[in-house]
Design a protein around this nucleic acid. Sequence first.
RNA 1: GCCCCGGUAGCUCAGUGGAUAGAGCGACCGCCUCCUAAGCGGUAGGUCGCAGGUUCGAUUCCUGCUCGGGGCACCA
Length: 559
Amino acid sequence: MKSQLQDLLRAALTIVLDGSAVPAPADILVEPAKDKKNGDFATNLALTLAKPLGKPPRAVAEAIVAALAQGGIVAKVEIAGPGFINFFLAAGALQQVVVDILNAGAAFGIDRSGSKGKAMVEFVSANPTGPLHVGHGRGAAVGDCMARVLDAAGWQVSKEFYYNDAGNQIANLGVSVQARAKGINPGDAGWPEDGYRGDYIADVATSYLAGDTVTADDRAVTAKADAEDLDAIRAFAVAYLRREQDLDLRAFGVKFDVYYLESSLYTEGKVDSTVTALQASGHTYEQDDALWLRTTDFGDDKDRVMRKREGGYTYFVPDVAYHVSKWQRGFVRVINEQGADHHGTIARVRAGLQAMAIGIPKGWPEYVLHQMVTVMRAGEEVKLSKRAGSYVTLRDLIDEVGCDATRYFLVARKSDSQLIFDIDLARAQTNDNPVYYIQYAHARVSAVFRQLGERGLSYDQAAGFAALDRLSEADAVSLVALLGRFPETVQASAQNLEPHIIAQYLRDLAAAFHGYYHAVPFLIDDTSLRNGRLALALATQQVLKNGLALLGVSAPEKM
RNA sequence: GCCCCGGUAGCUCAGUGGAUAGAGCGACCGCCUCCUAAGCGGUAGGUCGCAGGUUCGAUUCCUGCUCGGGGCACCA
């Protein structure tokens, strides 16, 4: 609809601008009018062209309108205010979207062609040193929705989880579990400094001593049950905690295509080859017995150490090697979803990749950073979890408010803003709760169709399509207009990496449907009108379903 | 000190270079002999943090300030 109007305007512009030196704008802004008085769509085109043309905006608008092709979907054009051009669509023009929706079904607004190329979303990437907390949950929800939205917008998407299975934190995990296995508890003499204190460490130790076998990421690890073998303890603890995280993610409806191990970067020589390439690039130097990368050549605020004085690489080197791998695997678009506390790493990773000089664009990879989550219950901040100690786990939330509500709440806000997660609101099974509100709209359509059957009536889609121009009530028109915006909403969400606008859209769509439901009865004697209204209801249900799928939230038939 | 994010209704948050800034919650007033009231309608509630600048037009873009959060390791 919008693009049809843009085409009309573009055609008109070739006439208006003929003979002038002013180029036609690349993009013509056409927006749905906020107020019905101003028609269905409006453009500010004349206002933007007034200055370059040196004419008053209203005169430009008049020239454009005079050049517009007559007829078609446009019934009336008006010039308003300082020079807005308002379009009033022909009766029934807007309603045609119902036909498109019901013909396309699950494919409406969704482009699964993958024609835009290979994209990767890396998210969660928690180190296996403990249970996932709310922050990881936000990352999981945002990352997973982003992957779904990109997939729906024509990208070929791979979801990846990167984890550190070596390094200091894992060493610390090993000694913490070992201490527990020897009966040493936090606070006791001999408890490792900075050891992980949560109760889950004791669970790992118990399982290790019992000789359990755990399977994680397609690898099975059997405990040696020997409290002296630190290597065995470490390997078991990593597998154990990875499995725990995986169970949580699965309960959250999140699955990954690839688990990438930091250790593999070393064993496969990727770290060494990256270091060699960086040295060859001429951007490295030795100082104070350490090897440095001159990341300041590429906009970082200070140079970074690659190889420490006492040997061994800093974390940043495998990070660069990892991203080289992503590039070499052919991902034209890579999105890293992380907590905002990691923002400092962005400049140096990009700098490292630029230094490689292997054709990686400057802004690659892209980052989506989410701000902190605060969990509230009964007006108080919730800080403690029995299992993990000092933070609220994702599992706590799923158990308490359910997967659907947790996902929705974590994704419904811009990731840029700090989020207050209100457990009481998320638990509420009332209209207070936007999740149920949207799901209820979907279930309501099913209820109408169940009633239709019980009354011995049937639905005739062809008759419904024929009656679409009779759906002229204000509530029907605003509902139909919203339905038509679903495809562009999906595209905008993917383009800007903003899954929250899908959540926002669905809330609006549900509201429009509930309004229509109350304003107009479906099961009426007028067969033609009944079929028309049912077609609209069915189309709404389809779009709700398509949209909820992008959020990973279920679309129940009955509530 | 430097870097990133935010400051919009009592609360939680959307939104936009334009025509009267929105939603939900909370408050108040209505609506079930009628397709699920997990719903609908209405009222009240705003100096869009402050000050400059750019613009025909700024809550939106720019600069400074201010408040809040996060980050500034030869840790990951």
